[in-house]
Amino acid sequence: MFQTHVAKDADQKPTLKLTLDMHVTEEDRERSIIGFYEQTNVDWTRPFEVELKGDCAIGDGVKKYLF
């Protein structure tokens, strides 16, 4: 029931978007990820999208790569 309640109207919410530049160092990418998750007052039930700059990968595979 809780999951249904939380996910209700999730498609209507604006997308959370994380953009990572694949041409910078791994340390810089990790800093970007940490900064993204340290944001305050974020509705984490919103749809999530990842963009890898400098990489032609798209879709759910990008999310799997990130996690």
Rank of each mutant, 00 (worst) to 15 (best):
T4V: 05
I58K: 11
C56T: 13
L52K: 03
D28C: 07
A10N: 13
K8F: 05
Y37A: 12
D28M: 13
T25Q: 05
M22G: 01
P47S: 09
F48Q: 07
K17E: 10
K17C: 04
V62T: 06
M1F: 01
T15D: 12
T15L: 04
T15P: 03
E26G: 14
N41P: 00
K63M: 11
D11M: 03
T15K: 11
K53V: 06
E26I: 10
F2Q: 09
E38F: 06
E51C: 08
D55N: 15
K64E: 09
Q12M: 08
V24K: 11
T25A: 09
S32P: 03
Q39N: 12
Q39V: 05
T25G: 09
D21W: 00
E27Y: 08
I33S: 04
T45S: 15
D28P: 00
K17P: 00
E27V: 10
V24Y: 01
E51D: 15
M22Y: 04
K8V: 01
V62R: 08
H23R: 14
Y37W: 15
D11H: 06
R29P: 02
D55K: 11
R31T: 09
E49Y: 07
A10H: 12
E30D: 14
T4L: 08
V62A: 08
Y37T: 15
Y65Q: 14
L16Q: 04
H5D: 05
P47C: 04
T4E: 10
H5K: 11
M1K: 07
G35C: 08
E30R: 15
G54A: 05
G59D: 12
R29Y: 03
A10G: 02
M1D: 07
P47G: 07
V6F: 07
V50R: 00
H5Q: 09
